[in-house]
């Protein structure tokens, strides 16, 4: 069953005085099945972030539609959008986006507090997640006391605590060193094995090689896609690398 369907998505940015317009997404269509782990790759400026913002309903597309669990995002009234994001989507960002006035625990609680849950319920939900991510001992610390990897794990815990149908990750390894990257990708993989649907936007081949499927975006369209199937991550790495080379040297789709 398709959890997320994207049909002919188009996003055009117009400059303030309506003079020039920039096409960020031209005609993007794809779907994500329940339990999938999808990576979207592309060079900077290829429209990755625009796509993610549209998927998160943070930005309205110019045309086309996005269906989440058969519900068209465009039909959700703007008043309920925040609640929709809170209930169905989890976010992990490149720069973590933790709030420095909150402790680790409160950062994780944030979406649940906004949803009006009681402390006991929040704690009950948070405990297994924090333990699995290895941040249970850090709960009372503040973001400025954490390493990059610890911050990102806190952000993942915050994304998971609402038990989202879809976890969206925007360059999650972008600000991490290689060992923290490795551990984050293992975490994602483990989450996926437990049934969590993941959609990750990245330009790191290493990160994308962990995904089950990789989509390549170029010039605002889905240019190419690769399935991992039963290959090893190393083999996938090479395939992605080749695909990217082909992409940048201007090879065409039928290659």
């Amino acid at each position: 069953m398709a959890l997320l369907e994207v049909h002919h998505l188009k996003k055009v940015y117009t400059t303030r005085f309506g003079g020039q317009s920039v096409v960020a997404l031209n005609d993007v269509s794809f779907s994500v099945e329940q339990g999938e782990y999808v990576a979207i790759m592309g060079e900077s400026g290829s429209g990755k972030t625009t796509l993610l913002n549209a998927l998160a309903a943070l930005d309205r597309p110019t045309s086309g539609e996005i269906l989440y669990d058969k519900q068209n995002l465009a039909t959700i009234p703007s008043k309920s959008l925040a609640a929709f994001r809170r209930d169905h989507l989890g976010f992990v960002f490149q720069d973590f986006n933790l709030l420095d006035q909150f402790s680790v625990q409160d950062n994780i609680f944030l979406p649940l507090v906004l949803a009006g849950k009681s402390y006991d319920e929040m704690f009950r939900r948070m405990k297994p997640i924090a333990e699995r991510l290895g941040i249970f001992d850090l709960l009372q610390k503040y973001p400025y006391e954490l390493s990059g990897g610890q911050k990102q794990r806190t952000a993942i815990a915050r994304a998971l605590i609402t038990e989202p149908g879809l976890l969206l990750a925007d360059e999650p390894t972008g600000a991490l060193d290689s060992s923290a990257t490795e551990s984050l990708l293992k975490t994602f993989q483990a989450l996926n094995e437990q049934g969590q649907t993941l959609l990750m936007v990245t330009h790191s081949i290493k990160a994308a090689a962990h995904a089950k499927r990789v989509l390549f975006i170029k010039d605002g369209i889905v240019f190419h896609q690769l399935y991992k199937a039963h290959q090893t991550t190393e083999a996938m790495y090479l395939k992605i690398s080749d695909a990217l080379t082909a992409l940048t040297t201007g090879g065409d789709q039928n290659e």
Binding site: L58, A83, N97, P111
Partner: peptide, 15 residues
């Protein structure tokens, strides 16, 4: 930036 993050994690503009 703080309020931007809060909006991303599910706070409405009204809140």
């Amino acid at each position: 930036p703080r309020f931007e993050i809060m909006q991303k994690v599910g706070m409405s503009a009204d809140e």
